[in-house]
Amino acid sequence: MSKQHITTTLNGEPTEFLCDTRQTLLDTLRNELRLTGTKEGCATGDCGACTVLLDGKATCSCLVLGVEAEGKDIQTIEGVAHEGELHPLQTAFLNNAALQCGVCTPGIIVAAKALLETHPNPTEKEVRYWLSGNLCRCTGYDKIIHAVMDAASAMRGEQP
């Protein structure tokens, strides 16, 4: 297996790793870099549990090769909280009981983070459209959508 040396920015820090040219970014994050917060639900880009931000864009890391991340900026769930402070989305998910088993939560929070960075005041429909690539089987999505809307208003500085 020929391995390539890849340099990236991972959760704000310069990070280098070796990965086989056929290894997905998901497997690289989980097996080489020990960041197991990004989950595999299907490995075919249909469930969104492996969502990371690649140059700021919500992306299924199971459909990206590790070598394609050369020179890119990667953000995973482990980078969402910042200096000991939870991100408003994380707080909103906890306060709204917007997770039950929690396996889809990392992927949804990362995808929602990308949404709120580009749509600070999304409608319910826009949130549902944006998150349709993130399957959840436990919650029926209701409290997840409420949590994202709450986080959006908190980030706009509105009192809950």
Binding site: G45, G48, T51, K57, A58, L63, V64, A111, G133
Partner: peptide
Amino acid sequence: IGSTQIQSR
């Protein structure tokens, strides 16, 4: 084509 995540690629 696909979801938000697929649209990125």
